[in-house]
Structures are given as structure tokens and as C-alpha cells.
Write a protein that binds this DNA or RNA. Structure first.
Lengths: 292, 292
DNA sequence: GACACTCATAACCCCAGGTTATGCCCTCAT
DNA sequence: ATGAGGGCATAACCTGGGGTTATGAGTGTC
């Protein structure tokens, strides 16, 4: 498996049309770039770039590989911006406190977009539940927060920035994967499901929407664990749409349509009452408005 | 930036709850794993795992980082399975020929799923346009093909496995990003757009749906180039929904609803007339049925 | 024909990350 | 209590991948 730096180099070559220029962009010398690309081609067993005395162009296979690589590099960029926010807890100009779900799935994308607009704004991130977020804001340790669930914590103002829908998913092998009729509320509430433990946000929403729930098939302590169990065919699970996007795209999970149930919760940006968002906070909010 | 192997190690630690066991799983020794995690914590400036004499558990920050890391590793897995298919052109048991769009966006996911069901089936991939795919199939160099566009090439049978929708997108700063009324066909066809060059599949679909088109704002030669131009605010672009999923999620692009135009094309699995799909081909098709 | 650009090759060098060997800490069973 | 065993850290050592500089060869362009 080639490493991240090599993939970035490949993207640079694709964009700039020359090994040497790509090398300069990623901060290495031309022979180093030449060698890296070659060793990558050896690893993959396919020629990736056509060298010519007046530049380098991607081959067919190279274009394909590059597009796959781009996805890795983009995920790495999200990781990087998130990690940086986690690290820079000191004297950041924009301090964000966010719930886990938001920090995990939405924030990196927002931060990448924010960096495009305000490249020099250092951002710091603290992740925690609603109470933690409220505490950070009221204690003056954060400038803006993001929470999920019903209502705004006391002492805070807020706006809805996104909707989180819960979806019912099963592994592709499950009988439900073949059904074409939407699931009804009655049937859903009568079926044992894979769920988070009692008290979790998603479970609360589900219980509120359905009233009674059948005894869970499995109770697990993290979203990831629920997802893995569902992927491996243990049974149907109910999860945030945000959490299963990749799995649905890759067909590791299949979404089962549901009708007659309202499985949404609001994701809100919040700030202390009276603090009208200005500056970087305002900028960040303008990015999030209308997000999925 | 930590490297891929380190991220995989972190995921293993999260899953197994012990540095030593994680080390064994990824094929290194315990001190090596210990060192890698530590150097990663140094890089990120955050403690990721709580070591105790009876195992290691992720910290809060560690859980967040791990979830971000998981996305990178999953993208890398898709890369890997694709790259392997590209390499193993010799004596593979399942030879797939696919159009670029499908090879790029859908096939890796299918191959991961297929590997879960048939771990020992070597898959090879050839990417090309419809004519290439048809040639490969009729010449006996491929077992199954995937093509986009209207109709099935002569001599082949096929089924629709997915719909590809074209979407209108703009950068978040564009005026259209604020509009709430759907775009009409007339308005769309009167607006200069960023498009692929004449003759490309997506452009053909657009022209078929709209009749006349305004002179393009920009004509570029790859989907990626169109996307980059749109992201950097050059203007509205029309692209396959498959190509812009990430950008929409990360708010680098905003989708503009359109009404009164049918912007779809079918993605089909194809095979030589008479060759009823059996074995691995049948298995692969069962995975793709009903995909987005 | 000189220059400017491409890429490749060769010789050298360094350190990140691996290994083995060992010790400390804690828990649990005898 | 006391060893056995699992879990982690530290230390000393080794290796090779990937970097560097220096140079040459091919192709346009002025």
C-alpha cells in the first residue's frame, strides 16, 4: 500500500503535469518524486504516468488510481484539520465545543471550508455532550457550540443548522434488503433491533417517535459497534444517517424505507444568550446553514 | 500527519483493547506498536489511549480521532481493492470491464462487498468507454461489463443496476446557493455552465434533456477539472451525483434543485447475449442490484 | 547552437520504525 | 503470600526506504 505522501504527490503530478513541479509543490526534489512514483508503479504493477521530455501525463489507469487516491487524501485532510483543532487548545481565535456526532461527521468538513475563507484563523475543538458544551460556552471557554437533540440548553441561544435523520439499515443479505414496501411504525416497534444503550441520544429519539420498543436484539455502547454488528448481519439497526453514509454507498448496508414515523432531530449551533455571533463565529455559521 | 499503518494500528487498538494484541494483528511487535502510538500522540499533541496494566482504552479525543481515521482507512481499502483488480490482469477468475464513472465511484465498494462473500476470487478490472467494454466482452477478455448511457451495445444483454442523476451545483458563495425556488429548464438552458467537452457522456445527457444549451462558461476535459472549477467559484456546473457526494457533504458545493428536467441515465451491467450470469458474476450482480 | 525545460541514474546519507531483551506493574489463582 | 501471566515501557541495536546532490540525456524553442 502506498503511503499518504506518495498519493499526494500523485495528485500534484496529475494537477501540474510535471514530476518536477509536483516535487517542488510537496517540498521534495525531483529525483525523489521520480523515485516515489516509480516505486508506486512497481507496487501497483501498473504504469501511472506517461513521461515525456516535455511533461508527464496520467495514463488511463493512472487517472483511475488518482481518483481513488483523491478520496483518501480528502479524508486525510478532514482528519488533519480535526486533529489540529484538537491540538490547538491554546490561544485559538475560534473555540468550538461540539457534540460527538457533530464533531465526528460534520465539523471536519466545515473546518475545511472555513479554512478556505479564513486561512489564518486557528480553531480549537472540545467534544462532549450537551452539558459539556453548555458549560464551555457559559464559562467563556468556547465561542460557539453545536448540540444535537431537542431544545436549547438554558442560558443559550441557537439556530438549527442541520437535520439528522435516523435510518433503519440491514446488511445486504438480510431479508428486509429485498422488500420493496416501506416499513410501518408498528412493524418497526415490534422488531428487535440493534441499538445504542439506554440513554443515548439516538435511542431517545427512536423511543420518542415509536412509543414502545421491542426488547433490543443487542445493546452496544458506541455507534461504531452498532454499525459493525449491522454490517456483519446481526440484524436491523437504527442509526444516524450521518453515520452510515459510507456504508450505504458501498452497499455494506441497505437502507430500509420507513413510513409514518418521524425520525429526525435538529442539530443546532448555540451561543450564550446575548452574544450575537460575529467574526469567525458568524463565518462558520454561514457555512453550516442548510447543511444536510 | 500520521501514516496509514499507524491509523490501522489505532483502529486495531480501539477494537481489541490492547496494544499488544493490536500489534499482533497488524503483524508487528508490542514495543513497535507502543512506540507508534506514542509518536502519533506526540504529533497530535493529545493523549489517544489510556494505558493500564490490564489493557488500553481510547480516551475521548482518541475516540474522535479514531472515527476520523476510520474514514481514511476505509478509503484506503477501496483504493487497495481497486488497485489489486487493476494489477491482477492475469488469470483472474472474474474479469470486469467498466466505464470510467462506474470504475471510479461504484466498483471499489462493490469489490469490497464481493470480497466479503467470495474472499478467494481474484478480480481484474479494465476501464474504458462503452465500445471498449463491448469489445472486451465479445472478445472473451471479460466476464461482465458495466456501462452508462442509453441502451445496451449490440450483441450484449444487460440489466439496469443503478441510476445516475445529474445535479446542478455551485460553490457556497454563489448567488444560486441562496435561492430557494427550484431552477426551471428554461433558466438552466439559458445559463452558461461549466461542462465537460462536447461528446462526453454527461454532456450528452444534458443536451438530450434540455434541447439547446447556452454556450458553456468553461469546457474542461475531466470530471475532476469541472468539479474543481465549480468549487473555486467559477460558476454553476452540471455533474454526476456520484462525483459530487463528498463535496456536497463537506459543503464545498451546494446542490441546486431543478424541476421539469429529467437528468438521469441508467447504469447497466452487461454480458454477451446468451451468457446467463452464473457464479461470481451472478454474485457481483446481486450486490449491485438496487444500488444508488 | 545555446538555453530551458523535461526526466533518469548514480552515489551517498540518515533516521524512522522495526527488532530483541528486559523490567515494572497489576491482577488473579493457587 | 506468592508466583504466573498479561500489559506496557525502556534501552540498545539494526536496517532499508526515501531523502539529498550531482550529473547526463532527450526534446523543443529562441
Amino acid at each position: 500500500m502506498p503511503d499518504l505522501a506518495a498519493l499526494e504527490l500523485l495528485l500534484a503530478v496529475a494537477r501540474l503535469g510535471s514530476l518536477g513541479r509536483a516535487a517542488r509543490e510537496v517540498g521534495i526534489t525531483q529525483p525523489a518524486a521520480s523515485g516515489r512514483i516509480r516505486s508506486m508503479e512497481r507496487q501497483l504493477g501498473v504504469a501511472l504516468v506517461d513521461r515525456s521530455p516535455r511533461g508527464s501525463r496520467l495514463t488511463e489507469a493512472g487517472a483511475l488510481v488518482t481518483d481513488w487516491a483523491r478520496r483518501i487524501v480528502e479524508a486525510a485532510e478532514a482528519f488533519d484539520v480535526g486533529a489540529q483543532a484538537l491540538r490547538d487548545r491554546r490561544d485559538s481565535r475560534l473555540r468550538v465545543a461540539a457534540s460527538m456526532t457533530i464533531a465526528e461527521y460534520l465539523l471536519p468538513g466545515w473546518l475545511i471550508a472555513l479554512r478556505a475563507r479564513l486561512p489564518d484563523t486557528a480553531v480549537s475543538l472540545i467534544a462532549g455532550n450537551s452539558a459539556v458544551v453548555a458549560g464551555q460556552l457559559l464559562g467563556g471557554q468556547a465561542d460557539v457550540g453545536f448540540v444535537e437533540g431537542v431544545g436549547v440548553p438554558a442560558g443559550l441561544d441557537g439556530v438549527v443548522v442541520a437535520q439528522d435523520r435516523l435510518v433503519v439499515v440491514v446488511a445486504p443479505g438480510h431479508v428486509w434488503a429485498r422488500r420493496r414496501v416501506p416499513l410501518g411504525a408498528a412493524e418497526l416497534s415490534a422488531t428487535p433491533l440493534i441499538l445504542r444503550e439506554e440513554g443515548s441520544g439516538t435511542r431517545a429519539v427512536l423511543e420518542a417517535a415509536l412509543g414502545a420498543l421491542a426488547r433490543p436484539l443487542l445493546e452496544l455502547s458506541s455507534t461504531t459497534a452498532v454499525k459493525s454488528a449491522a454490517v456483519s448481519g446481526a440484524g436491523p439497526a437504527v442509526l444516524s444517517e450521518l453515520a452510515v453514509g459510507e456504508e450505504l454507498a458501498a452497499r455494506r448496508l441497505v437502507r430500509i424505507p420507513v413510513e409514518g414515523v418521524r425520525l429526525r432531530r435538529e442539530l443546532r449551533a448555540v451561543w450564550p444568550v446575548g452574544h450575537v455571533p460575529v467574526g469567525p463565529v458568524r463565518e462558520l455559521l454561514s457555512l453550516t446553514r442548510g447543511a444536510p
